[in-house]
Design a protein around this nucleic acid. Structure first.
Length: 268
DNA sequence: AACAGCCCCAACCGCGCTCAG
DNA sequence: GCTGAGCGCGGTTGGGGCTGT
């Protein structure tokens, strides 16, 4: 293999390949004391013969506390598929919604398992609905057209869920209800034509995007946007226009900052 | 038992972004 | 405004383990 510079390697010989238990221990001990910073200088200080990038990757994907290892559950798969339909290969964004999972793990899981299935949201919903129907249950208030019972229970929990979401809900009028003035059409914000199987937003503002993500994603994004509008100084109308004109990447980055620690669910 | 082919995932690579100087 | 170091992200690779013959 060709030797490369820091962005891809090092002039002096460094260890490559699988990490040993000894290396892991050195890295963990160092990060515990010094924190996650200065990755380039870390190897020398920690006594590791690795490049900084390799150390960072090892820490983030394997050694960091809270990393969940093992099989990805069906619920997690559902969420990955939905998020991938919306966001594409933005693995870090998707991983940010799955507590304990890394972008690398999700990317690998997608490439080895889910990409072969290549389910669209509509297909996923169809699959879920079939499951629900086969159970013969139809609880009051349960939106059987799009959501499985499990999802419904979980999304209901969100009302008492992460603080960020509660705050966002409060900011948007409490109880997750749309704010009469600050509420706006989420469908209109993005070009969803690239999302598999989606039609154009309806004139009345209820788009297929809302339908497909309804139980979770739309609520979270809309609440965050509402919170963003609420927090702006220039009045909601100006800010709304600014947000509506924002391209997808910028908006996603903005929301990611707003929502850095927020999660959809806590999978057991 | 030995070999080949396949699968999975940890790790690597290069590009692009951010930010301090 | 320019530059370079540092970092984060997504795509790709390669080696170990598993399975089939």
């Amino acid at each position: 293999m060709v030797k490369r510079s820091e962005s891809g390697g090092s002039k002096k010989s460094v260890n490559r390949g699988a990490w040993t238990a000894e290396e892991d221990e050195k890295l963990v001990n160092y990060v515990k004391v010094q924190g996650e910073k200065k990755w380039k200088a870390l190897p020398a200080k920690a006594g590791l013969n690795r490049c900084g990038k390799s150390c960072r990757l090892r820490w983030l994907n394997y050694l960091r506390p809270g990393i969940k290892r093992g099989n990805i559950s069906e619920d997690e798969e559902d969420l990955i598929i939905r998020l991938h339909n919306l966001l594409g290969n933005r693995w870090s964004l998707i991983a940010g919604r799955l507590p304990g999972r890394t972008d690398n793990e999700i990317k690998n899981h997608w490439n080895t398992h889910l990409s072969k299935k290549s389910l669209t949201i509509n297909e996923l919903n169809h699959k879920i609905n079939q499951k629900v129907e086969s159970c013969g249950e139809n609880k009051p208030g349960f939106p059987s057209s799009t959501v499985s019972e499990t999802k419904w229970v979980k999304s209901s929990r969100m009302e008492n869920g992460p603080k960020e979401l509660q705050n966002a809900q409060l900011a948007s009028g409490g109880e997750g209800a749309p704010h009469p003035e600050k509420d706006f059409d989420v469908d209109g914000l993005f070009d969803f034509s690239s999302v598999a199987g989606l039609s154009e937003p309806n004139p009345d503002g209820s788009g297929e995007f809302t339908e497909m993500l309804g139980f979770e994603f739309e609520g979270v994004y809309q609440n965050l946007l509402n919170a963003e509008l609420q927090g702006s100084d220039g009045g909601c109308s100006e800010r709304q226009i600014e947000l509506e004109q924002m391209d997808f990447d910028t908006l996603t980055r903005l929301l990611q900052r707003e929502d850095e620690d927020a999660v959809f669910f806590s999978f057991d």
